[in-house]
């Protein structure tokens, strides 16, 4: 089944059923990114059990320079 979700603000169509599958489909290293779904943090260990729904807003972030 294909779902339309927003990943880091960009609309994308995915066959991923869970957040863990989405992270893998995008080619992200599992431990190299942190995730949020619809504004709430999703811990690494909960991605597998977090099912995606249409129009979900997913944030996938990684370390960056900061002040």
């Amino acid at each position: 089944m294909q779902l339309k979700v927003f990943v880091n603000g960009e609309a994308t169509v995915t066959s991923a059923a869970t957040l863990a599958e989405l992270v893998a489909q995008f080619g992200f290293a599992e431990t190299g990114v942190a995730t949020a779904l619809n504004g709430d943090f999703v811990p690494r260990g909960a991605r597998q059990s977090t099912r995606l729904a249409g129009n979900d807003k997913v944030e996938i972030v990684s370390p960056r320079q900061g002040g």
């Binding site: 880091n8 603000g9 995008f26 080619g27 992200f28 290293a29 190299g32 990114v33 942190a34 944030e59 996938i60 972030v61 990684s62 370390p63 960056r64 320079q65 900061g66 002040g67």
Partner: peptide, 22 residues
């Protein structure tokens, strides 16, 4: 030192390189 998090671009996986440096 201070650091931050930002949206990662697909397949770039650039963030961990920065973290390794720090």
């Amino acid at each position: 030192v201070t650091v931050s998090v930002r949206r990662e671009s697909a397949r770039a996986n650039s963030g961990m390189g920065f973290f390794e440096l720090v």
